[in-house]
Write a protein that binds this DNA or RNA. Structure first.
Lengths: 122, 122
DNA sequence: CAAATATATGAATATATGCTCATATGTTAT
DNA sequence: ATAACATATGAGCATATATTCATATATTTG
C-alpha cells in the first residue's frame, strides 16, 4: 500500500519483496506442468527403476533377464516396468512368451548424465 | 553350460540371454552411484520442491517470500528447503532475521529442461 | 530486558509407494 | 487338451514422506 523502494517489513504469509514475488510468479510454468515434471522425476527417484533404465542404455532386455540382473522378484520387476512404461520411458515388444523392453526416450540419458555430474561432487 | 549361440530357454530367475546380462552388468555403475542418483531424483520428485527450484531460477528469495508464493505453511517451506539444501541444490545466506535462498547447482536447469522436453509429449 | 518477527525443528498424522504373495493371462510344446 | 513357462496384476503390508502443529532459536526494536 505504501513503501515503494525498499520494502523490508512484514512477513507471516505477507510478502516482503513484492516485486520479486511478482516477477517469479510471472515466470513460473503452469501448475500442471510443474506437477507433471515432479511426477516424471518421481519415476527416476527409485533405485530399481534407475537400474532398469541404466541396463536398457546398453541393451534391450526381456523381463527374465532384468529379473536375474537385479536379483529381485519377477513380480517386482514387472510392476516397475509398468511404471516406466506409463511414464513413456520404456517400450516393449512381444516375441513368443517373452517381452523385450527397451528405452523409449532420448532425454533420459542426458538427464542421468547431468544427475551424475551433480553427484560426483560439485 | 552349453548352447553357445542362441540361448532361448529357461527363465525363473535363470538368465535367458547370458551374454546380454553379462555385458549390461559390466557397464552398470556402482550400486552406490545408482542409489545416490535415485536419491537426487527423489528430491526433484515433489511439486513443492520443483516449484521452489523454479522460483530460484528467477531470483534469490527469502523464506517468507517463498511461503507467500507457494501458499503453504512457513514450516512446510522450511522443511523442504532443508531437503534441497542437504542435496546441495540450494544455498542460503543470512541477512538479519531473514534467510535468503538461491540455487547452488548448474545442472538443475538442464535437468529440468530435459524433463520438460520429455513431458511436452515425445 | 521484553516484544515482535523470521526461520528452524521435532512429533504426529495421513498418504504414497515398493515389495511380496497369490493368481491370472497368454504362449509354446507335447 | 494339458503341462510348462514368461509375464502381468490385484491385494496386503511395511516403510517412506509431505504437511501441520507446537515450539525453539535467533535477530531486531522499543
Amino acid at each position: 500500500m505504501n513503501d515503494e523502494q525498499g520494502s523490508i517489513e512484514r512477513c507471516s504469509s505477507n510478502v516482503v519483496h513484492k516485486d520479486v514475488v511478482d516477477l517469479v510468479k510471472e515466470r513460473m510454468p503452469e501448475d500442471e506442468t510443474l506437477f507433471d515434471l515432479a511426477e516424471l522425476f518421481k519415476v527416476f527417484g527409485d533405485t530399481t527403476r534407475v537400474k532398469i533404465l541404466f541396463a536398457l542404455f546398453t541393451a534391450e532386455m526381456c523381463v527374465c533377464d532384468i529379473t536375474a540382473l537385479l536379483g529381485l522378484t519377477q513380480s517386482a520387476v514387472s510392476h516397475q516396468l509398468r511404471v516406466l512404461k506409463q511414464a513413456r520411458l520404456v517400450k516393449c515388444r512381444k516375441e513368443g512368451k517373452m517381452v523385450y523392453y527397451s528405452l523409449d526416450d532420448e532425454h533420459v540419458k542426458q538427464i542421468f548424465d547431468q544427475g551424475l555430474a551433480h553427484i560426483s561432487h560439485k
